[in-house]
Design a protein around this nucleic acid. Structure first.
Lengths: 146, 146
DNA sequence: ATTAAACCTAGTAAATTGATAGGAATATAG
DNA sequence: CTATATTCCTATCAATTTACTAGGTTTAAT
């Protein structure tokens, strides 16, 4: 029941792109430096975000990545589901077909259902914009101290 | 973000012991048959429950396992934490020491904290007694149809 | 003494995780 | 048109976890 580093990094990458958005394309090595993630690993993760259309890219010199839409268009849940796969805590609840044949007499199923709903509620209740705003607010408050 | 079969089986074993409690010790092969879990795998899982004091055992002929306390004394969360380890969705939140040095400037941390709380709330809100009752109620309602 | 059970330890195939590595394709700058 | 900066693609890898299977040891009742 852990979120993998792939999922965590993906969220951080999206927030990073939102916070450091200048209109230009951000390069992998810049994001990697800011987020302290290996360039090569980050490359793989951002490629998934790219294929899903969450970010857009251009290749070659001056190329890079930027968010495809407004940060408020992405929930944490969307990003986790993309990079982690389903957030459903048990396979029995996935898809429209109930895999296991104990499902109709399985008391525990209802607990997993509640759990899945609780998880979705949290991760779909927070957007990349929310997280980016919070970071910008903290950065501004730090500026005041200088 | 899946609950492993070890955790799911552990919960089912506890519910099974609650539902089929006759005062006698239940044998691994009986539980295995009822729950459709391999005897050997079940043995390993119930041994964890035993060492934690959730069930008690006697060896030798007529031996077996029974719940150590009333089914209402066990939450699903207790059993999952035992068999799965912490239900914390990220390592950063575990223990009293913050592992990673980004923690104090990490916006995403708050999401994971909310997520952890939501998960705990669900799994600690359901007891083995709740699940056992539900199963007994269904069994009784089935009896009426015969 | 036999037998029925829990107990203990080791092994194992498959999948997943968290990367690293190297090169191919492509766009810009000079 | 060439050099360079960048994304893009694929392969590999070590470590860990998962979900078991297997086989023997100990203990208690009959």
């Amino acid at each position: 029941m852990k979120i993998s580093s792939r999922g965590r990094y993906a969220v951080r990458i999206m927030v990073d792109l939102a916070v450091n958005n200048t209109g230009e394309y951000a390069k992998v090595n810049q994001i990697a430096r800011r987020q302290d993630i290996s360039e090569k690993y980050l490359e793989q993760i951002i490629s998934v975000l790219n294929k899903a259309g969450f970010v857009k890219s251009t290749r070659g010199a001056q190329g890079g990545y930027k968010l495809a839409k407004d940060p408020s268009a992405y929930t944490v849940g969307m990003i986790l589901r993309l990079t982690e796969g389903s957030l459903c805590p048990v396979a029995c609840l996935e898809g429209d077909v109930n895999e296991c044949d104990r499902c109709d007499t399985c008391e525990t199923l209802d607990v997993w259902k509640q759990l899945g709903e609780a998880i979705n509620k949290v991760v779909d209740g927070v957007t990349i914009a929310d997280l980016a705003e919070k970071q910008l607010a903290r950065q501004n408050s730090m500026d005041c101290l200088i």
